[in-house]
């Protein structure tokens, strides 16, 4: 890895210990499995809208190249590959990459234990960074390296946690210590990113934000849904100008 790195050492150690459990639906990543369907829905719908793909096509992402930065055990890479995309997943944790490779062996996904700034020269139709930026040391450098991997006319989709009192109470304290949805120490609230901060990082990297959408937990139904409330978890889409 180069002298300048976007990866935080303490953060990687934390995820290595958990890597084995990526696919245990009742394990430490239980909450991630539950929240995953709405994330995939958002990614699929944003890609369909951006690239003008017909809704309801059997393999809607066929022919698109997607880079998933911080792919973890492959929870997002696998469904996207099943929808027809050519997916490359990268992660700073070698354990997670090992798990992802063995779990999704049949899906033709390429997994690499590397960082975005080391992929130099490659271009993708779509680059994802789901819940990564809040674990990154130098967000400016990370966003620059990420944007460089998107082809002109391509799409960026990101997700993170907002830095609000509500996210401190629910996204950090309640989720880690009270409800036990994610292991304690998963998140450092001070590194959470406000939508305005994320947007300005994207702008400086040359991307144009096209959508913000929140994710809310419905206690009554016991599931997650897309919403307008950006107060805790939110996702965004941004286009890279240019292309045909």
């Amino acid at each position: 890895m180069g002298a300048e790195s976007t990866v935080s050492g303490a953060e990687i150690g934390h995820f290595d210990a958990l890597a084995r459990q990526w696919w245990d639906e009742d394990g430490d990543f239980k909450a991630l499995h539950r929240i995953n369907p709405v994330r995939i829905q958002y990614i699929r719908d944003q890609i369909q809208a951006h690239f003008g793909i017909e809704v309801g096509a059997p393999k809607p992402l066929k022919g698109l190249s997607i880079l998933d930065i911080g792919c973890g055990g492959g929870l997002i890479a696998e469904p996207l590959a099943r929808l027809g995309a050519e997916v490359i997943g990268i992660d700073a944790s070698a354990d997670a990459i090992g798990i992802a490779r063995s779990h999704g062996a049949k899906l033709g996904i390429q997994y690499q234990n590397t960082a975005p700034e080391d992929l130099g020269g490659q271009r993708f139709d779509c680059v994802l960074s789901m819940e990564v930026i809040e674990h990154v040391e130098d967000t400016e450098l990370f966003m620059e390296a990420t944007a460089a991997l998107i082809r002109p006319g391509g799409l960026f989709v990101g997700a993170t946690l907002n830095r609000t009192l509500k996210s401190l109470a629910l996204g950090k304290i309640a989720a880690e210590y009270v409800l036990g949805w994610v292991p304690p120490g998963t998140h450092d609230w001070r590194k959470f990113v406000r939508p305005s901060e994320f947007a300005s990082l994207l702008r400086r990297a040359g991307l144009q934000v096209s959508d913000f959408t929140g994710i809310s937990f419905r206690a009554l139904e016991g599931d997650w849904t897309l919403s307008r409330d950006l107060g805790i978890n939110y996702m965004l889409a941004a286009a890279k100008p240019g292309g045909e």
Binding site: D26, H33, N36, P37, I40, R44, G56, L80
Partner: peptide, 15 residues
């Protein structure tokens, strides 16, 4: 069907 259209594992517990 919704899970299938998202490329998700249709037999996963959370589905």
């Amino acid at each position: 069907i919704e899970a299938h259209r998202l490329g998700l594992d249709i037999g996963a517990a959370h589905i």
